[in-house]
Design a protein around this nucleic acid. Structure first.
Length: 139
DNA sequence: GCCAACGTTGGC
DNA sequence: GCCAACGTTGGC
């Protein structure tokens, strides 16, 4: 069981859109980056992830679960690109902002801090627990 | 709106 | 296979 972080611009695909998909979830498509794709290939059904809003909000706003392993991205004919399907699990009680994450020395090594442009990122178990704590969620 | 960082593309 | 040019992303 591993942990991840999915980054999206809320104006394009936000937490509300993800929530509206309910249990059936949705493809995390449109990723055109090899690193991000490779992480998705490593994902297994049942893995959990943070849902992060970039741009104005810059905060973790929800928890999602991987419900289908990597498969071809339906938004392109290019066979290089794959994606997983995820569903919303629950919103955070308190959004965890990038500012908070940057301000916490325990989270200094998070990929979000080190390479903010990567749209799909791995999160360690330690980081997961810390961010869940900041979000007001029991671990 | 600007700028820095990064990834990708294409010419050689 | 290398490297310069270009485009995109995201934080400020």
């Amino acid at each position: 069981m591993r942990y991840w972080l999915f980054k999206s611009e809320p104006s394009t695909w936000g937490w509300d859109d993800q929530l509206a998909k309910g249990e059936s979830g949705e493809e995390w498509n449109g990723v055109r980056n090899y690193q991000a794709r490779n992480f998705m290939r490593e994902m297994e059904v049942g893995d959990l992830g943070f849902f992060y809003h970039s741009q104005d909000e810059k905060a973790v706003v929800g928890i999602v679960e991987v419900i289908n392993p990597a498969h071809p991205d339906s938004t392109t004919d290019d066979p290089r690109w794959e994606c997983v399907d995820i569903k919303a699990v629950k919103p955070v009680k308190t959004p965890v902002t990038l500012e908070q994450i940057k301000g916490d020395p325990r989270l200094a090594e998070m990929v979000l801090v080190r390479n903010s442009r990567l749209s799909v990122q791995p999160v360690t178990a330690e980081e997961w627990a810390i961010v869940c704590g900041l979000a007001g969620l029991g671990v």
